[in-house]
Design a protein around this nucleic acid. Sequence first.
DNA 1: CTTCACTAATTGTCTATACAAATGTACAAT
DNA 2: ATTGTACATTTGTATAGACAATTAGTGAAG
Lengths: 359, 359
Amino acid sequence: MIIDKNSPIPQYFQLQTWLLEQIEQGVFKPGDRIPTEAEFSKITGLARATIHQAIQNLVNMGLLVRKRRLGTFVLEKVAAPSNHKIVGLLIPDIRRGYAPVLARGVQDEAAKNNHSVILCDTDDLFVRADFHADRMIENSVSGVIFVPTAVSNMQNKKILDKFKQNDIPIVLVDRTLTYENIDQVTADNIKGAYEMTEYLIKRGHRRIAITLSTLISTERDRLEGYKKALDVYDIPFDEKLIFAHSGPFSEGRYIKIAERIYKSDLDITAVFTGHDRIALVFFAVAKKIGISIPDDISIIGYDDLDFTMISLTTMHQPIYEMGQESMKLIMSRIKGDLSEPQRIILESYLVERVSVKQI
Amino acid sequence: MIIDKNSPIPQYFQLQTWLLEQIEQGVFKPGDRIPTEAEFSKITGLARATIHQAIQNLVNMGLLVRKRRLGTFVLEKVAAPSNHKIVGLLIPDIRRGYAPVLARGVQDEAAKNNHSVILCDTDDLFVRADFHADRMIENSVSGVIFVPTAVSNMQNKKILDKFKQNDIPIVLVDRTLTYENIDQVTADNIKGAYEMTEYLIKRGHRRIAITLSTLISTERDRLEGYKKALDVYDIPFDEKLIFAHSGPFSEGRYIKIAERIYKSDLDITAVFTGHDRIALVFFAVAKKIGISIPDDISIIGYDDLDFTMISLTTMHQPIYEMGQESMKLIMSRIKGDLSEPQRIILESYLVERVSVKQI
DNA sequence: CTTCACTAATTGTCTATACAAATGTACAAT
DNA sequence: ATTGTACATTTGTATAGACAATTAGTGAAG
């Protein structure tokens, strides 16, 4: 029997629990009519008022609906989990580089899925990422799109774990984390850098400087593509041409690097800058100290930001599309896609302008 | 008497409603013990079970707690309203102009108050603003910061009304709406434009073109400041020097306007562009057709965006601060400040670079 | 001083019963 | 084909009364 009259557990509660189980186990499916109170009364031997109370509780919980004359019915699962449709976006700084474009791609795709986007800047600092992560969890976001901060892998992992503990899907965008089996959307930086370097080589450049931050996966990848191209074209690799540091982007640092490169005696004919904002610094410094691009030195960038006033040969990154794709991925996870973590790699293409000289 | 036995309204519901009123009006204060079920039964003449049902409903609603042997008590107001701390930001396009800086100012101030920001782009279209407004309301934001769209006042008012109907505080930023008694944060565009125009006049310019979109309040204000300066310095106002249109910013349109101005025979010596992005177009067009700034024509902008490669004399707008101030205002409204709508006007200052020639 | 059993007050659960209200169905009237 | 009406079924509300469970307070026992 369903009801144990000797149990200290209230009988209405026993019935309620039993009914809940039946519904959860699918014995009573959404849309089904459950037995009438009178029938239950007969089955269980309880008074109708007791049955009524049990059922009423489930109605209050939103699992059943009563319809006069018709009976009581199991409700469709309303997909109650998190009725506010919000996805978090963690980026370094909305004012810098490609961030606005990425944010826009994310948002447009979110809007298509009737979701809103909470935007948070990390400034490439762990504490900020951590702070914002807490608030996102507090606000029960349905998913998170995360541009890993330029800090240690371990610290980034801490952030990821926070979300994982709360069963919030995450997608990494642009930058990746080593040894992390997680959804990712990136551009093919190795291939892109290879093509860029090849482009320079084919125009006669052999002494190509490259700048990067070793904390940022994309820039490490670009160094790899750069080396690969040198290797393929039998150009000796020179450690002195690598201008690397381990920190986030800072204008001051690159002004110094640009000055060093312009004044060096390393026979550098071209600079593969880490990204367009660095290239812009190189243009500004060149202008200041009277060096002409591309006549005196060739500069290439990476990103294809919308500069208007300088004509930079660069690699167009599908930033907007990366935003879109990452949101698509999050949406499929939110909807319950449980397949293996995906790694989506988007194609970049070279945009030839006039910052490179044929030697 | 409390209960009307002849009413079609269920008696338990009558009692429940009455109790709710008593609590809301403070007759039963938080912490108070309300009469026992038996007492209520005596007072109302209803069966104890009926009393029980009425009280149970209020317990379920979280207004009362029952304690065996002790009685039923009114709960402390848990101040449940909106436990997720989210503020909406409605801007035209996060990728354009000052939007990223504004967004950052808003966010930093929000973070200080442990709030998150939902970012939504309107593209200066009513339908988008409306769409995002609905979703913000759905997500029960605690407040909204709104850059009015470049559409009719009536349409913007519709958006405002939506939020007002849901008791969501709103602050208008940068652009204003005529005849709206509402919290606003703006820069003093009339004064700014006056100073800019005065600056040009003092450098010998008398034929000063000005560009604007009449849909945008800030640009209308700047026209006013411009006229005022001409008036003060006794320079005749020439309708032909006003290049106005009624639409949002479009690069194509301003390329045409720039070409028209550069090729005109109106003796224009300086152009007061509507904002820095327009100024940038003027620089690009000048470069393309071989005109030198400031030698052939002087250009001034408005905003002080971070351009690096062009040296534009412009009016620095406190965009970041406007973001901060608007969030401060929203926070005070969220916290229950019911004073009169405020209009916060921030100061701009002229940034002299080298895009203006002394005549 | 601590522990324990008892008391009284109050809510919690339950029975049995009754009438009210809503509404799909069927059938009649128009 | 539409409208009206009566009917049957089912949930909604209500009553009276009973016993169970909980627990602060009291006073007795250790």
